[in-house]
């Protein structure tokens, strides 16, 4: 019975060229939308700087002590700043219904969400990574580790965006998903934190950082491969619920 209908029905057109078109359209749309709400782009950066300011005030202004804990502090603060921006990743699209249009599109949802995550990384992870060395100076981060800090954050925050998008997609339909989102996502962030902060510490100690960066890259590759499916499935659940 099922076979007959597939033979009779006209074959669906392959969305080959359409996929590239839809991807660039989603990228462009999200970039434009985000750049029009500059406050939302700047908030995580301000939050990052503020949290970094709290630590010398709360612990000690002693540069030796700060230098010791700076890699971990910078990484944790950047991670929290990235987490803060996650809630808005799908929120406005969910509210105005454009998320449903994304679900109805003939192109695979997993690919389209990847474009949205890419925009999120471009406007959150990358700026955080570029800003981290400046805050590193303020925390007396030892010389020679600044480039590694920026590179590890840029690599790691892409993984954070991908994993975080799963949590954001699962909680987007909930009225107060914010705290739940951090509960879901933070445990999954730990491997990235370990290897990201580890890379900076290895650079300070004068060890080779390639192992840490390679593992961060491997985590990103795995997340790129698996996360889009989980994000797409979660979005479908949130829309139907």
């Amino acid at each position: 019975m099922l076979q007959e209908t597939t033979e009779v029905a006209p074959r669906l057109k392959e969305p080959g060229e359409g996929l590239a078109l839809a991807l660039t359209a989603t990228l462009k749309r999200d970039l434009v939308l985000m750049l029009r709400r500059r406050g939302e782009v700047l908030n995580p950066l301000v939050f990052f700087a503020l949290v970094i300011t709290l630590f010398p005030v709360g612990i000690s202004p002693d540069p030796d002590l700060l230098a010791l804990i700076a890699p971990g502090l910078l990484w944790v603060a950047a991670l929290l700043a990235a987490l803060l921006s996650l809630d808005s990743l799908f929120r406005s699209d969910f509210d105005d219904g454009s998320l449903e249009q994304l679900l109805l599109a003939p192109q695979p949802l997993a690919a389209l969400t990847l474009a949205k995550v890419a925009v999120h990384w471009l406007l959150t992870g990358l700026p955080l990574a570029l800003m981290a060395p400046i805050l590193g100076i303020m925390l007396a981060l030892p010389a020679g580790s600044y480039l590694v800090l920026a590179v590890s954050l840029a690599l790691g925050s892409a993984t954070l965006s991908l994993i975080g998008a799963i949590g954001a997609a699962l909680t987007v339909g909930l009225a107060r998903g914010g705290v739940l989102l951090s509960l879901l996502v933070l445990p999954l962030y730990i491997p990235v934190l370990i290897f990201g902060a580890g890379a900076v510490q290895a650079a300070i100690a004068g060890d080779s950082v390639s192992a840490h960066l390679a593992i961060l890259g491997a985590l990103l590759a795995a997340a790129l491969m698996l996360a889009p499916w989980a994000i797409a499935a979660s979005l479908r659940i949130s829309i139907n619920g």
């Binding site: 799963i166 699962l170 339909g173 499935a233 979660s234 659940i237 949130s238 139907n240 619920g241």
Partner: peptide
């Protein structure tokens, strides 16, 4: 149903 599927994912 949503709760079940979300928890499964």
């Amino acid at each position: 149903d949503s709760a079940s599927r979300a928890a499964s994912v």
